[in-house]
């Protein structure tokens, strides 16, 4: 199992593992800390992503906030052939299943923080 200690955070008092990689959403409002299982990501095999989401301003998450994950290969004109499923483990803590990078090359993993149906995207570049 991963080292990520996914303590319910409720949108504030986030105590992330210092080793986690992170990305910021386009608005700058959210920090996405993440870990893959297994790590490194195996080529052409399913893997899991654990996400720890926090607000930069430390406020509570908006009601109904959700997370959507997808991935793309910008140089190829296509993305993954799966529809990942995101499960909220606790507020701010998500488990993403159904990810599979079937090709080597440069991928972009998208974590969309959805508020009122509007995505705020964090983009994570991954070289396979």
């Amino acid at each position: 199992m991963v080292a990520l200690i996914l303590t319910p955070v409720g949108g504030c008092r986030v105590e992330p593992e210092p080793t986690l990689d992170s990305a910021t959403t386009a608005s700058g409002d959210y920090t996405v800390r993440y870990e893959f299982e297994p790590d490194p990501i195996p080529r052409n095999e399913h893997f899991v992503m654990h996400v720890l989401l926090s607000r930069k301003d430390g406020l509570e998450f908006a009601p109904g906030l959700s997370v959507v994950v997808d991935a793309d290969m910008p140089a190829h004109g296509h993305g993954i052939n799966t529809q990942p499923e995101v499960t909220m483990v606790s507020p701010g803590v998500y488990k993403v299943e159904g990810l599979l990078f079937h090709m080597g090359g440069q991928w972009e993993l998208f974590v969309d923080v959805m508020e009122d149906g509007i995505p705020d995207r964090a983009t994570i570049p991954i070289k396979m």
């Binding site: 399913h46 004109g77 296509h78 993305g79 052939n81 799966t82 529809q83 990942p84 499923e85 299943e97 159904g98 599979l100």
Partner: peptide
């Protein structure tokens, strides 16, 4: 059946 469970049609298909 992970491959079947998570497969979804995309425009690029």
């Amino acid at each position: 059946n992970k491959s079947l469970h998570y497969v979804a049609p995309k425009d690029n298909n």
